Computed example of a mutant assay.
Amino acid sequence: MRVVVTGGAGFIGANLVRTLLAHPGISQVAVVDDLSAGDRTNLAGVAATLHEGSILDAALLDEAFAGAHAVVHLAALPPASRSAADPLAGHHVNATGTLEVLEAARRVGGVHVVAASSASVHGTERELPERETARAAPRTPHAAAKLAAEAYLGAYHHCYGLGVLPLRFFNVFGPLQPAGPGYPAVVPAFLAAAMAGRPLTVHGDGRQTRDFTYVGTVAQVITEAVVRRVVHPDPVNLGFGSRTSLLELAGELESVLGHRLEVTHTAPRPGDVRDSRADGSRLRELFPTVVPVPLREGLERTSEWFSTL
Rank of each mutant, 00 (worst) to 15 (best):
P24G: 06
S120L: 14
E127V: 10
G154K: 05
A64Y: 07
Q208S: 13
R207E: 15
P181N: 10
N15R: 13
G239D: 09
V172H: 06
L56G: 07
L238D: 06
W305K: 08
F170S: 07
A80T: 09
H259C: 06
L167D: 08
Y156R: 08
V32K: 09
L20I: 02
A194C: 03
A80N: 11
V71W: 06
H69M: 08
A115F: 03
G161K: 00
E262W: 00
G8H: 04
L50V: 09
V17S: 09
A68D: 01
G154Q: 12
G298F: 06
G53H: 08
E248P: 03
R228T: 12
T96L: 15
P79A: 13
H69Q: 14
P78I: 14
D86T: 00
R260E: 14
E224I: 01
S307L: 11
D211A: 05
L309A: 12
A76K: 13
G197Y: 02
A44Y: 03
R229I: 11
T49V: 13
V227C: 10
F306E: 10
R82V: 12
E252V: 07
L253M: 11
A75Y: 02
D205G: 02
P288G: 13
P188M: 06
R243T: 06
L56D: 11
L253C: 09
D62V: 05
L283R: 09
Q177L: 04
H91E: 14
G8F: 04
F11L: 10
V227E: 14
P129I: 11
A119Y: 15
A30N: 03
V72G: 13
R135N: 02
A68Y: 01
G13E: 09
A116E: 08
A75H: 03
H142L: 13
L21A: 00
Y214R: 05
H91G: 12
N94F: 00
P87A: 02
V226Q: 12
T223M: 11
L16H: 01
G216R: 07
H232R: 15
A225M: 05
Y183A: 15
G251P: 05
A95D: 01
G8T: 08
S54Y: 05
T19A: 14
L167K: 10
L60E: 10
S36C: 12
T19I: 00
G13H: 03
A219Q: 10
Y183S: 15
V29W: 03
V187P: 04
A59K: 13
G258K: 01
A189R: 14
P24K: 07
F173G: 02
D272E: 15
V290I: 12
A196P: 01
V186L: 14
A70H: 01
V218T: 06
L20P: 03
E285R: 14
L56F: 04
L283T: 00
G38M: 05
D39K: 15
V114G: 08
W305T: 03
A30R: 08
A115N: 09
L283F: 02
E248N: 02
S255R: 15
R229V: 13
G8K: 11
T41C: 06
Y152C: 13
V186W: 07
A219H: 07
A219P: 05
P188Q: 12
S307H: 09
T19K: 15
A89S: 11
A189D: 15
L257I: 05
E63H: 10
V5L: 10
T217F: 02
L167P: 05
L153V: 02
Y183D: 15
H51Y: 12
R40P: 00
H23G: 04
P292W: 09
E254D: 08
F212K: 04
G251I: 03
V121P: 06
R210W: 06
